[in-house]
């Protein structure tokens, strides 16, 4: 049986979720080929344990993201079960590849068993769907839902220089305002809501985040109220879905739209002055306190570790 993995890249290297894709693929058994768009991360991918072959795709079309042209080049190499990350680009590319090879796609799965039975969260996390599908097909996997494969492999790297006509031309790149970690990538996320009172108070969240290497997120209410808090920080239904090992919600009441984006976090800590805030309903550890009192204490305690 063949499994094709679409490498998720980060800059010129590989994104750690790629190791999780290989980990999930290895649990099914089979011959694993990793496709590296633009050749990015080819060397990194070749040393992931379990990978048989890496195809480094070096056509001109891979210089900027165009799911149409990328998928045209990648579809002929997409054999058996095709796996990608359920990142925005992974979903888009996965759907285009599925369409080009004429197979269905199931997005954002959190479990896969031989046979193939997949599970995923639907209805904003209010239900879990289990479905069965057969190879060939495309699936995208939720980040941090699968164990990553270790290093130590030595797969051959094959270079392919195919390109396809580009139909999306990038005219201007606009860099992110801050250089903080993306909430989707972080093991620990600390988020603030409108309870923070003022956007300038997010600096207190940043301070705690710096101590434990966390990313800083925000609720929709905070993003909608304050221009200083960009949408890229928003966790929840019209923002990002996160799956960290620890999620700390500060001054967030816990509207259903927010819970939809973070309830699958492994551990949730809520800090809120309102003891009846719905966020306490999903929290493993709740602290009824103002952020003004709790955050300095949190920074100090975490600093001691």
């Amino acid at each position: 049986m063949e499994i094709t993995i679409i490498a998720e890249t980060s800059g010129e290297g590989i994104h750690p979720v790629t190791e999780q894709l290989v980990g999930a693929a290895s649990s099914l058994g089979g011959v694993i080929t990793v496709l590296c768009p633009g050749g990015r991360g080819s060397d990194d991918a070749s040393v992931i344990s379990g990978v048989s072959k890496v195809i480094s795709l070096q056509g001109d079309c891979f210089s900027s993201f165009d799911s149409g042209s990328w998928s045209t080049v990648m579809a002929p190499f997409s054999q058996g079960i095709v796996m990608a990350s359920s990142s925005p680009s992974g979903r888009e590319l996965g759907a285009q590849i599925a369409s080009k090879i004429g197979v269905p796609i199931v997005q954002d799965i959190t479990g896969i068993e031989p046979g193939y039975k997949v599970t995923r969260s639907v209805y904003s996390g209010k239900a879990v769907e289990t479905s069965s599908l057969s190879s060939p097909c495309v699936v995208t996997l939720r980040q941090n839902a699968f164990e990553g494969a270790s290093g130590g492999g030595s797969a051959e790297v094959v270079v392919v220089d195919n390109s396809s006509e580009v139909s999306v031309s990038v005219r201007e790149a606009i860099a992110k305002a801050g250089e903080r970690m993306d909430v989707s990538d972080a093991e620990i996320v600390i988020s603030g809501g409108r309870g923070m009172g003022d956007p300038s108070n997010f600096s207190h969240l940043n301070e705690v985040a710096d101590v434990i290497g966390a990313a800083v997120g925000a609720s929709r209410a905070a993003v909608d109220s304050w221009d200083e808090i960009p949408h890229s920080m928003q966790v929840g239904q019209t923002g990002k879905t996160v799956n960290p090992t620890l999620y700390i919600a500060v001054g967030i009441s816990g509207a259903i739209q927010h819970l939809a984006g973070m309830r699958s976090s492994k551990y949730i800590v809520a800090i809120n002055k309102d003891p009846d805030a719905p966020i306490f309903g999903v929290a493993d550890y709740g602290i009824v306190a103002t952020w003004e009192d709790a955050l300095p204490a949190l920074k100090e305690e975490l600093g001691k570790l």
Binding site: E92, Q96, I105
Partner: peptide
């Protein structure tokens, strides 16, 4: 509801 994101890119293809 389904939270997928397949429809747009699939149709474009």
């Amino acid at each position: 509801d389904t939270n997928s994101g397949s429809t747009g890119p699939g149709i474009a293809s």
